[in-house]
Design a protein around this nucleic acid. Structure first.
Lengths: 340, 340
DNA sequence: CTGAAAGCGCTAACAA
DNA sequence: TTGTTAGCGCTTTCAG
């Protein structure tokens, strides 16, 4: 087994408490003593026992990260941001995929509580924050990730989804498109609902209209299916705005299969700007979200609350999205304009 | 704060030890007593303190997962497998991205040691397993992920990369290709080296030959760059086999930009069969690895060692890859055959 | 500035 | 079958 603080104390000929002090309150130990202790630590390759420390100090450098699905490139980027911020602060991240299922989320929340994590970063699977109440009550720092805090008792880091939706709409509008389709996802995802709000209001403002399609999940397969069935029922449009890039990539497949060319026949706009959007065969126009930064900021928020809960003031950080125009969108073609 | 076992004991009018027993050794406590205790547990919403338990029992239901980069879809799938197996067993997974850098890996290994995790799943950043020695010495269960165990003191779960390389080569050969380019990655990645070995031997066996290209990293950007520079120097080939799908996707961009059509002019074969390979504009022929299963199996291996180190026998699990033919590869064209 | 001692929540002997 | 007790490794008063 590894050596303990007692071993270090013995080797350095000091008491246990002094070793603890050089580790946690170096300012109140004499330099000479500290040096001796440090030598002993190196000698014994001593590595502190985090769980034991935690038991006493009720302070764990462990974070729980609860996301719908790490396989979504959006969340893997966010996770990288979280992880880097955590490692910098000496924290460690427990990864939890809720699959957007309340039951799975609850299970994880219980495990995280059992592990006595110091903080939790969560993109909730449902609107209600009830299940977080317990944690909050037990002094766990919670911050909402990619969700705006409704109340005052948690921090949040998010991206302005209304604005993002508007950005996508305005891009299509600026290119002259007036027959627009909005490919949404499940209705209960708040991010998607906000994007839709922003899009609708921009479109209405321009006096244009939108047809709404909904995919079952936020995946390529769902996007493909939704587009395919819409196509088979016959719809007339020149631009397609999607609730995320995965959906867009799937829709493009259906579109291509139906013989439609992109962007000549249909302009496609995605959302998230995942890496594969840029490197797709038809590079995808998309609304970029600062994913890494989002995760990084959220992690710094929880960590700051963990480090000093007393003087912590809850805050809401909101990032701005940005439109990235690529080859999947272009001005509405002359023929389409005439047809209109 | 949450309630403790002592509170439960008091409420159920039993001793602390009995509560511990109903939790850990239910067989040796009377049904009636157990029922009382369980009622108290529910009543108080008691959730055990994992770190405290661990301190005493030296047994942590926590795993460390160390991978080069979770942003690589291959590893995110593997991670899902690990996570699901872990959750089933009541374990929790700490995610660690080494970025394939030894320094970062070491830092994480130290943190994991400090957290006293029960087991570590690792795709090592370097060939040497030295840094794992300490952990092993301290009784941490280690299993190699996507790497074959060289020695006897660890478990491993991997996929037969030699075979995978051969599969890719044979597919190209079967389609009549004789001018093949192999787009490799960094030379020190063992998985890639093995794929190359398999590929080379299959090609040689068929009396054909291969030109070798190397990308700096296993990313789309690197693949694009490598292909672009090779193209600018002029190379004559009809099939491209890539060390992974990311590389292939990048290479396809360069190929397309150079006016080459896929698969008409060039057949492209990837490796990993990530989700985006199937949903790319030109669905990619690829060598499928059972990613989820790999992670799942590896996790079950470590967990079984954690649960019962004494009776644990180290084992090497190896999966078989499988070729998935899609539209990016086709028989060598008549013109090319003639030209030859 | 340093040491001694109490105890965090729990498990594992050992007694009863 | 249940209760009692001694720590696990560490932080934190409180004295010295």
């Amino acid at each position: 087994m590894g050596s303990s603080m007692k071993d270090v104390a013995t080797l350095a000929s000091v008491s246990l408490g002094t070793v603890s002090n050089v580790l946690n309150h170096p300012e109140l130990v004499a330099p000479a003593t500290a040096a001796r202790v440090h030598r002993a630590i190196r000698e014994l390759e001593f590595i502190p026992n985090a769980p034991a420390r935690q038991l006493r100090s009720r302070h764990a450098r462990v974070l729980g990260l609860v996301v719908p699905d790490i396989a979504n490139p959006f969340f893997t980027e966010v996770a990288r941001g979280v992880e880097d911020a955590a490692l910098d602060a000496g924290y460690v991240v427990i990864l939890c995929n809720s699959d957007a299922q309340a039951e799975r989320e609850d299970r994880y929340l219980a495990v995280l509580e059992s592990q006595r994590v110091g903080g939790i970063l969560i993109t909730p699977a449902r609107k209600s924050l009830k299940p977080l109440g317990r944690l909050l009550g037990n002094g766990v720092a919670v911050t909402l990730l990619d969700n705006d805090a409704p109340a005052q008792d948690v921090c949040s880091a998010s991206v302005d989804d209304r604005m993002g939706g508007a950005l996508a709409a305005e891009h299509a509008l600026d290119l002259g498109h007036r027959k627009i389709v909005w490919l949404a996802g499940p209705a209960d995802i708040p991010q998607v609902a906000d994007r839709e709000l922003g899009l609708m209001s921009a479109v209405r403002h321009a006096g244009a209209s939108v047809q709404r399609l909904a995919a079952k999940q936020m995946t390529t397969a769902s996007g493909e299916m939704a587009m395919e069935s819409a196509l088979s029922q016959g719809i007339d449009f020149t631009a397609l705005v999607c609730a995320n890039d995965l959906l867009a990539l799937g829709a493009i497949r259906a579109l291509t299969r139906a013989g439609l060319r992109i962007p000549d026949d249909i302009s496609v706009i995605g959302y998230d700007d995942i890496e594969f959007a840029a490197s797709a065969a038809i590079p995808l126009t998309s609304v970029r979200q600062p994913k890494y930064e989002l995760g990084h900021a959220a992690a710094k928020l929880v960590i700051s609350e963990c480090e000093d809960p007393a003087s912590h003031a809850h805050q809401r950080v909101q990032f701005q999205p940005q439109l990235v125009a690529r080859q999947s969108s272009s001005p509405v073609s002359a023929s389409d304009t005439l047809r209109r």
